[in-house]
Amino acid sequence: MVVQTKKQVQQDNELLAQKIHQNLIDNNIKSFDIVGAIGAGKTAILEKIAEKLAQKYKILVICGDITTRVDANRIEQYNAETIQINTGRECALNAYHIHQIIKNKDLEKYDVVFIENVGNLICPSEFILGTDKRIVIVSITEGEWVIEKHPMLFKMSDIAVINKIDLLERLGTNLGKMTNDAKKINPNIDVITTSAKTGDNIEKLIELMGL
């Protein structure tokens, strides 16, 4: 068996991610990798986005979970096509997973691809997937320290979504601190607050994504 070092694995992943990105660009597809912890609201936000955009775009959502297709079933109800990857013991999707799907799909059929990564704030920082943008979603229920405790994903992301602001009054979370932390880690990151439950700022997020 060939044993690769972590560096080699990441280099291979990066090369494949570049190939995926080029393939998506060649087919005029906009693509987004959605990362965040379990329960942050990744699926709920994708449901809202699909609900608003399914008439306008042909959407493919690739869902990563260690097991089940619960998230894919939820999103499918909003007229987006879904493909589930069950990663088993792996805590993040990698470019190889995505490549296996992309190379078997007629990409001309799609306008937008979303990849909902496996729920956690650590492992997905190891692997880029070849999308246009990475969006990291946290919720105020995770505590106001969640961003400063997980800098890598914020460093690698283009948009930070702070979700569940409908609970702000009850929880008293320091939103200013969360926004400042994200900006301190990555000055170029766009920060937006949302509520997937009430739909607050979802339109604004869609705009920020350029859709």
């Binding site: 297709r69 493909i83 990857i85 069950n86 088993g88």
Partner: peptide, 8 residues
């Protein structure tokens, strides 16, 4: 078996 990776 124990949790392989499945791409549907």
């Amino acid at each position: 078996g124990d949790y392989p990776t499945f791409i549907e």
